[in-house]
Design a protein around this nucleic acid. Structure first.
Length: 157
DNA sequence: GCCAACGTTGGC
DNA sequence: GCCAACGTTGGC
């Protein structure tokens, strides 16, 4: 089993939104980057752990914990001209985009903020802290994952 | 196939 | 709102 960090802008879709969603599960649609697509298509496995990261937020950091419940399959929003995530390439070529389903598994008593991550040597190699790290889906280590749960005060749902 | 121009991401 | 870093596009 592996561990991931997934970014979402809370104004678009927050961890609170995930908690309120049916079965506390969402289709992680809209990833339009090939590197991230490759990770979701080839590396994500059911049961993998997910740190739910709020980017472009008032409080930037890890807001909650989730797991992969369905492995990569086509992101049909890319084929829907009315969707915000429509990609016109799908008119000419097979839809290249993939998503996974993610379910909330744990709340955090407090968001593990970016400042907290930066202050803790356990996270010094984390990709999300590197300058210019825009990849919206990133691997994290087991140690990083477990430390986030610990300092965030993770509570099972 | 190079690379300049452009668009996007995301921290600050 | 600014802007640095990055990915993509398209002219040549």
């Amino acid at each position: 089993m592996r561990y991931w960090l997934m970014k979402s802008e809370p104004e678009v879709f927050s961890f609170e939104d995930l908690l309120k969603a049916p079965k506390q599960t969402t289709h992680w649609e809209g990833v339009r980057n090939y590197q991230a697509r490759n990770l979701m298509r080839d590396e994500f496995k059911a049961g993998d752990g997910v740190l739910f990261y709020h980017s472009n937020a008032d409080v930037t950091g890890i807001a909650g914990v989730a797991e992969v419940v369905k492995e990569g399959y086509p992101d049909s929003a890319a084929e829907d001209p009315k969707s915000d995530y429509y990609d016109p390439i799908t008119k000419k070529k097979p839809n290249p985009w993939v998503l996974v389903d993610v379910r909330a598994t744990q709340r955090l008593q407090q968001t593990v903020t970016r400042d907290m991550l930066k202050a803790d040597p356990a996270f010094k190699n984390m990709m999300v802290l590197k300058k210019g790290a825009r990849l919206s889906v990133q691997p994290v280590t087991k140690e990083e994952f477990q430390r986030v749960l610990k300092i965030g005060g993770a509570q099972k749902l």
